[in-house]
Nucleic acid binder design. Structure first.
Length: 651
DNA sequence: AGAAAGGTGATTTTT
DNA sequence: TCACCTTTCT
């Protein structure tokens, strides 16, 4: 069969072993995407499986689209009917259909982190609760609980704080429901609930063959979903690499891959250990680093690629100098800019690098950070759309009721809310009854009525999303508001809105548009045909490859991040993250750290640098004299971001 | 009562 | 750099 010809024996085994439970341990650059695409092609072409009987779950929408594309090239149009997407998009589709079983209507809104935060804030304020943890932190704790299948009633209480969180968690879930909204975690959790409660739903979504990419980053709920979905036919292929598990903070459970053998009967395991991406040197360095981890299955990656150059390490005096050095090296190469990526641990680091690139007129693109759809003006307009689709969505309504300014301040809103609560209607419908709310003066009533009428006009006849956005921008005065602003940023906001309209043009219905916008991932917006230097966090780089990779900010406390110092498991995750960074590179790796950064001086180089074998690493020419470094270490007060891990072991 | 202006503190990673 | 809070102005 020609499909198999271009695959190595292990890859062939992973492709042709179609029945039963299969775990493919695929090291970085070992061609796992290739295996998945070919496997789906093999199923359809050779095993005559109907394409709609196959479900493939990927980590990003982009990965799904690409895979679909590649399968189509292999076997043609039939590939179009394979169910492909992220866990979240799959669950959303299921819940549009079966959410009613849980008391949701099909037009429910998907809340992002910002919406969740606002909702929690509102709950705390309304109830006058006292709690020291900021809303974002509470959202994090609730999310963690959800990812571990802990419902509000089961939330453990061990002190005053946790008791409060439990209370807020409960109220939060109730509020979500009355807003007809789900957060990201609910999508997974509720999908599970649907399957547990409805045989019909489970039957309809039990695929004959299920394939999962990036399995090491699944959480308990996703794991449970897979168990439910694969039960009927028992054909499940998961592909993953425990050394690339980097999403523990959002509930990803590395145990899912470490214990896969125990949990699924008669499991078959295939290891892909040949790396097709990197040089021998890069691979050696990366393997040595990650071998310091205890929580791993362990594998030996090897490659037939050439030895290649050593990794370089550059010591900068500060973040600016580090950024300048990065740009200088890129310039020296005289290669297409798309060959380069600069990786960092935190989004905040991008700024200095951006500035340095801009100074040299070098075009760049940032993946992640403040995302397009998270910008204020975009979220405002989306809030209009969401209220039109789902009038129960009070959080979105709160966003727009006085944007642009209509003179509806906190007081008036309070009255509206009180009425809505008393009459048990959504706030949106309280707008219809403003004349019944005596507390609101006549002049304000008029304004509210006007706003309501405007919304209702659109709600009755929802046209195509692009046109709808245009109308809203004009009729609400949002565009005028921006035009009147003197600030330069108003102009870029208008540009962004035009971009939004252009983006919406690709969708026929408002539902489709909102859904895909809500479930977009960072990397989905990245276009690899672009011609610029790519800047992103190491997290976002997963699954990508570049000829030349820079990893900046390799300081103790930053990478590894100080928050991981006290927890061995978290420290190992940082190490895996670094390993992911290294293995993105095909040809060359440049590492750097700064001795001082945003108010911190005497930063120590990352311990991960020490873990790179000496014969694969060289110091960049501008290294400071050794005695200077020694003195610096002796003088330093490591307490600031060292978390007590005193280390003076530099050569 | 609502808007604008001014000051302050905090910044891990993300579906 | 930005989001959030307080103070001051209309």
């Amino acid at each position: 069969m020609e499909i198999l010809d271009s695959l190595n024996p292990e890859q062939q085994e992973a492709v042709t072993k179609t029945d039963g439970y299969l775990l493919v341990l695929a090291g970085a650059g070992s061609g796992k995407t290739r295996v998945l695409t070919y496997k789906i092609a093999w199923l359809i072409e050779h095993k005559k499986v109907k394409s709609w009987d196959i479900l493939a779950v990927t980590f990003t929408n982009k990965a799904a689209a690409e895979m679909k594309d590649r399968i189509e090239k292999l076997i043609g149009e039939v590939a179009k009917q394979v169910w492909m997407g992220t866990f979240h998009s799959f669950c959303a589709r299921l819940l549009r259909r079966y959410g009613e079983l849980l008391g949701y209507s099909r037009n429910f809104t998907i809340y992002d982190a910002d919406d969740s935060k606002n909702l929690i804030k509102k709950i705390i304020k309304d109830k006058g609760l006292e709690i020291k943890i900021p809303p974002k932190g509470i959202a994090g704790k609730i999310s963690k609980a959800k990812n571990n299948f802990i419902l509000p009633d089961k939330y453990p209480i061990y002190d005053f704080q946790s008791n409060r969180i439990k209370e807020i968690y409960k109220l939060y879930q109730e509020a979500l429901k009355s807003n007809n909204a789900m957060d990201f975690d609910d999508l997974l959790l509720n999908a599970c609930k649907v399957f547990q409660e409805s045989k019909e739903a489970l039957g309809r979504f039990s695929f004959k063959y299920i394939l999962v990419d990036e399995y090491q980053d699944t959480n308990k709920v996703q794991y449970e979903l897979l168990k439910l979905l694969s039960k009927k036919y028992g054909n499940l292929t998961v592909v993953g690499d425990e050394d690339q598990s980097i999403y523990g903070f959002r509930g990803a459970d590395i145990g899912n891959i470490l214990h896969f053998e125990k949990d699924f009967p008669q499991i078959h395991i295939v290891r892909l250990e040949e790396n097709y991406r990197s040089t021998q040197t890069i691979l050696k360095a990366a393997s040595a680093v990650v071998s310091n981890n205890k929580f791993r299955i362990g594998k030996e990656l090897w490659t037939n690629n050439e030895t290649g150059n050593k990794l370089s390490l550059y010591t900068a005096r500060n973040a600016n100098e580090e950024a300048r050095k990065v740009v200088e090296v890129i310039k020296k190469y005289k290669r297409p800019l798309k060959d380069f990526t600069v990786l960092y641990r935190t989004n905040a680091q991008s700024r200095v690098i951006e500035e340095a690139l801009r100074r040299e007129n070098m075009p760049y693109i940032i993946v992640g950070g403040i995302r397009f759809y998270e910008r204020k003006e975009i979220k405002d307009i989306l809030a209009y759309l969401r209220v039109l689709m789902n009038p129960d969505d009070n959080i979105s309504l709160a966003r727009i009721i006085n944007t642009p300014l209509r003179g509806i301040g906190p007081k008036t809103r309070r009255f509206l809310e009180d009425y809505a609560k008393k009459e048990r209607v959504p706030i949106y419908f309280a707008l219809k009854k403003v004349n019944k709310i005596k507390k609101i003066i006549l002049r304000k009533q008029k304004v509210l009525k006007k706003f309501f009428k405007l919304m209702e006009n659109h709600r009755c006849k929802l046209g195509k999303p692009a046109k709808l956005i245009e109308n809203i921008l004009n009729e609400t005065g949002y565009l005028d508001m921006l035009r009147e602003e003197e600030a330069i940023e108003a102009e870029s906001r208008i540009e962004n809105l035009n971009e939004l309209i252009a983006g919406a043009g690709e969708y026929e219905t408002l539902e489709d548009f909102i859904e895909s916008v809500s479930l977009l991932t960072n990397i989905d917006e990245w276009d690899e045909t672009q011609t610029r230097v790519t800047l992103m966090t190491t997290h976002n780089a997963k699954g990508l490859e570049f000829p030349i990779v820079f990893i900046a900010g390799l300081e103790e406390g930053l990478f590894p991040h100080s928050s991981s110092f006290y927890d061995e498991a978290e420290l190992e995750e940082e190490r895996r993250l670094f390993h992911v960074g290294l293995t993105r590179a095909k040809e060359r790796v440049y590492l750097s750290y700064a001795q001082s950064r945003r108010g911190y001086s005497f930063c120590l180089p990352s311990r991960f640098i020490d873990e790179i074998p000496a014969d694969t690493l060289e110091m960049s020419e501008e290294l400071l004299p050794a005695d200077f470094i020694e003195k610096m270490h002796a003088d330093s007060h490591p307490a600031h971001r060292m978390g007590g891990t005193h280390r003076f072991n530099r050569r």
